[in-house]
Design a protein around this nucleic acid. Structure first.
Lengths: 239, 239
DNA sequence: TCAAAAGTGTTATCATTACACCCATGG
DNA sequence: CCATGGGTGTAATGATAACACTTTTGA
């Protein structure tokens, strides 16, 4: 079966940059080893061609699940890559998505299209197919800026978590060398007012930590108020 | 001539959201009146089909110039819209770009594809073709958040400008009702350290204002330093 | 009673806000 | 000498950074 058009059309694909974190670990990214040409055997971002009746996001989630077994993630559009030379097969435009997930909750599983699937540490990446190293770098930058102004990452922790866990999470995302100052991290996070105290640890061989959970409704309310405030007082750009 | 593929492919277009400002005016957006079906006669964002040998950005700039006569703008990718129902002609995925330009420096001029071209005030928009009202709303949000953390908009002013001009610009972009506090606006902007004092007004019937220009090199240096700093001290997200 | 991790006090410094006031110019 | 913007002083309040210290638990 063939499909014919009056004008030539680029092929359209989606690619997924899935970041994974577990407690205390470094930031990782989910890659597949390609089972077909081009770049057969080469590591790459999971992704594939967009079908006619699905949205871009649906395509990204479908390819992700088909190739890696990973499902139920909140992805977000990253950028669309359209350099005419980016794919040796011809003109292929790719819409990239990204997400940050809890490693432990997302066991991987290779399938038909991929010979192999694996989490790689951000600091120790192989050379990737196509322009995927570049896409990944853009995604890392985006993740690290996003973490600055949005309460990202709460989904990576258990429903109830300690401030130390949260701090470790931030340190991992930001890839800091020195740990952040504990006192100041706590003050800042708590001052935001989006954490609810919900209990404390039991059975640990040290002072039990308070447990918190993320108060989503409060967050949304504050976000609205903050927007009003921004409009009133103008700008405070940070360079 | 026809083009045949083994699998169906969505059509790929670009759309441009060009915001325009002149001194003291409200924020405007550049629209064209469509000359062809679908939505013939309807106002829409300038845009069109991507050709095989051009990048997405090149396509956006080409369509912009063809349809409106506007050239030499710095555009930035906004988002890619891929709802299967967004175009009545079938599956059309569109990569949207946006820019902010000086009205006075960009005279418009309708051409073949468009019956008419015009700047519309953001507050008084007609109903647009396709999902263009939606795209435009996303672009407005992006512009207003961007202005908070990036020194955007300096290109809209003359090479040398006064702080009052800059303040008017910010007020227009943000769409504020009350003017911003002059004292505080100035303190903040100057503290950033990206403005160079370059002289003062002459021949005005009031105290002559100091003239400033944007110090791009200084900005880039500060941006680098600030990134280091962020990494060191962690996060200060703002909700 | 000790190790381990949680959690707090405090101070100096800097940034933000709000309001009122003074200054330089051409007509 | 006045209308018209341009430009500044200042004080209260709040945020940030740095460092050292206390608390609570199980083993």
């Amino acid at each position: 079966m063939a499909y014919t058009y009056d004008y030539p059309r680029p092929a359209l694909t989606v690619d997924c940059v899935i970041f994974g974190l577990g407690e205390g670990s470094r930031l990782k990214v989910l890659l597949i080893q390609r089972g077909h040409e081009p770049f057969r055997g080469c590591w790459a971002l999971p992704g594939g061609f967009v079908q006619m009746e699905e949205t871009l996001e649906e395509a990204a989630l479908r390819e992700l699940e088909e190739e890696t077994g990973v499902a139920n993630v909140f992805i977000e559009q990253l950028y669309t890559f359209g350099d005419p030379e980016r794919d040796p097969r011809g003109r292929v435009v790719s819409v990239a998505y990204f997400a940050l997930v809890n490693l432990a909750e997302h066991p991987v599983q290779a399938s038909s299209d991929a010979k192999n699937v694996q989490w790689f540490e951000i600091e120790q990446l192989p050379s990737l197919a196509f322009d995927h190293n570049y896409i990944l770098q853009i995604a890392i930058n985006r993740l690290r800026s996003k973490v600055r102004y949005q309460p990202i990452g709460f989904e990576l922790l258990p429903e109830q978590f300690t401030l130390t866990q949260l701090q470790n999470l931030y340190e991992a995302i930001l890839g800091v060398k020195e740990p952040l100052n504990k006192r100041n991290f706590r003050t800042r996070i708590l001052k935001m007012g989006v954490l609810k105290e919900v209990g404390k640890q039991e059975g640990v061989a040290h002072r039990p930590a308070k447990l918190y959970s993320f108060d989503k409704e409060r967050y949304e309310q504050l976000a609205r108020e903050r927007y009003e405030d921004l409009i009133k007082r103008g700008v405070d750009f940070e360079i």
